[in-house]
Simulated scan of single mutants.
Amino acid sequence: MRYMHSDAALPPLDGLTALLAAADAGSFSGAAEALGITHGSVSRRIAGLEAWLGTALFERHGRGVTLTPAGQRFAAEARASLGALSRSAQQWRPWRGRQTLRLSAVPSFARLWLIPRLAEIECGDIHIDLLTDHRPNDLGAREADVAIRYGRGNWQGLTARLLLSERLVPAASPALAAKLGPAWRAPDLLRHPLLHDSDTAQWRSWFGTAGLSYHPRWQDRRFEDYDTLLIAAAAGLGVALLRLPIAQPSLDSGALVLLPGSEALDNPAHHYLCTAETDQRAAVAIVAERIMALR
């Protein structure tokens, strides 16, 4: 078959939807069922798109169809472009009924603070697709709609609102706290394993207020997720710096106890509720206000 490239500036939209449906289904029949049209309509739409491009997009065989190398590249670009167009349109279309928004947070914060409050955020009219990742999602590129980030709040292109501040205070399992005794001092902690996440700045700051320096040692334990660190502390594996209020449930349950007479230190990093500066969607504003109200 000979393909003649069209001079039209944009591809036919119905051809793009047929292309993606056929790529997903692996056959024109499956695409027709998914789109609610006939097999012949799918075939004509694909043929029109191939004529516009001037190249074959599918290899036809008895078991169905598969994308050609050119078809694979074009389908990937078409899917990304249509997705971006759909996300952009959401900003301007009036908000009606139940809508899905993507909320991004690091896994430990999601498990310790966010998930117990998720039903209050959704309120039955918004569905939250919770994204948990250590990599910050790009709100400007709409990888997520709302994010809770941990840091100092100076992210370019984002509106960052202070959600939670933290106080740092040493804690341990009841057995380890009893071993330390009520008269413990900061140097006594260095005789036990210290638990920390990927950032040891909090322990360094805490020991700094006591006039001591701290550098990670072989007996100390590092955990990627803060809630895993709390479990390790409850198991008696070392002393932890509690980040209050998000670690409060560990105290309430009795799994951990504050070391007697310990002084709390302000954490220089905070949790911020972030949205893209250019995002004016009503649903995003509503979710943001509901989260801020839970402080």
Results as ranks from 00 to 15, higher is better:
Met1Arg: 10
Met4Val: 14
Met4Leu: 14
His5Thr: 10
Leu10Ser: 07
Gly15Met: 01
Thr17Ser: 10
Leu20Gln: 05
Asp24Ile: 13
Ser27His: 09
Ser27Met: 11
Phe28Ser: 00
Ser29Lys: 04
Ser29Met: 07
Gly30Met: 02
Ala31Tyr: 12
Ala32Gln: 03
Glu33Arg: 15
Leu35Ala: 10
Gly36Asp: 05
Arg44Val: 15
Gly48Glu: 12
Leu49Ile: 09
Trp52Leu: 08
Thr55His: 05
Ala56Thr: 13
Ala56Asn: 06
Ala56His: 13
Leu57Lys: 13
His61Gln: 03
His61Val: 00
Gly62Glu: 09
Arg63Trp: 01
Arg63Cys: 00
Gly64Asn: 05
Thr68Val: 01
Thr68Asn: 06
Ala70His: 12
Gly71Tyr: 09
Gly71Met: 06
Phe74His: 12
Arg79Asn: 11
Arg79Cys: 00
Ala84Tyr: 01
Ala84Pro: 04
Leu85Thr: 06
Leu85Tyr: 09
Ser86Val: 14
Ser86Asn: 12
Arg87Glu: 13
Arg87Gln: 15
Ser88Ala: 15
Gln90Arg: 15
Trp92Thr: 11
Trp92Gly: 02
Arg93Gln: 13
Gly97Met: 11
Gly97Ile: 14
Thr100Ile: 07
Val106Met: 01
Ser108Thr: 07
Phe109Val: 06
Arg111Thr: 14
Trp113Thr: 08
Ile115Ser: 14
Ile115Cys: 08
Pro116Phe: 05
Glu120Trp: 00
Glu120Thr: 08
Ile121Ala: 07
Cys123Glu: 11
Cys123Gln: 15
Ile126Ala: 10
His127Trp: 08
His127Asn: 04
Asp133Trp: 00
Leu139Arg: 01
Gly140His: 11
Ala141Gly: 05
Val146Ala: 08
Ala147Cys: 07
Ile148Met: 05
Arg149Phe: 13
Tyr150Trp: 13
Gly151Leu: 04
Gly153Tyr: 03
Gln156Phe: 09
Gln156Cys: 08
Leu158Met: 10
Ala160His: 02
Ala160Trp: 01
Leu164Gln: 11
Ser165Leu: 01
Glu166His: 14
Leu168Ser: 09
Ala172Val: 11
Ala177Ser: 13
Leu180Arg: 03
Leu180Ala: 08
Gly181Trp: 10
Asp188His: 14
Asp188Thr: 09
His192Phe: 11
Pro193Tyr: 12
His196Asp: 03
Ser198Arg: 11
Thr200Asn: 03
Thr200Cys: 07
Thr200Gln: 08
Trp203Val: 11
Trp203Asn: 04
Trp203Arg: 04
Trp203Glu: 05
Arg204Ser: 14
Arg204Lys: 14
Phe207Ser: 04
Gly208Phe: 02
Gly208Met: 00
Thr209Asn: 07
His215Ala: 15
Pro216Gln: 00
Phe223Leu: 07
Ile231Arg: 11
Ala233Cys: 09
Ala234Val: 12
Val239His: 06
Ala240Cys: 15
Ala240Asn: 14
Leu241Val: 12
Leu242Asn: 01
Arg243Ser: 15
Leu244Ile: 12
Ser253Thr: 10
Leu258Gly: 06
Leu259Asn: 00
Gly261His: 09
Ser262Ile: 00
Ser262Leu: 06
Asn267Lys: 05
Asn267Leu: 02
Asn267Ile: 09
Asn267Tyr: 07
His270Leu: 05
His271Gln: 15
Tyr272Ser: 09
Thr275Ser: 08
Arg281Val: 03
Ala285Lys: 06
Glu289Asp: 12
Glu289Trp: 02
Arg290Pro: 05
Ile291Gly: 02
Ile291Lys: 02
Leu294Asn: 03
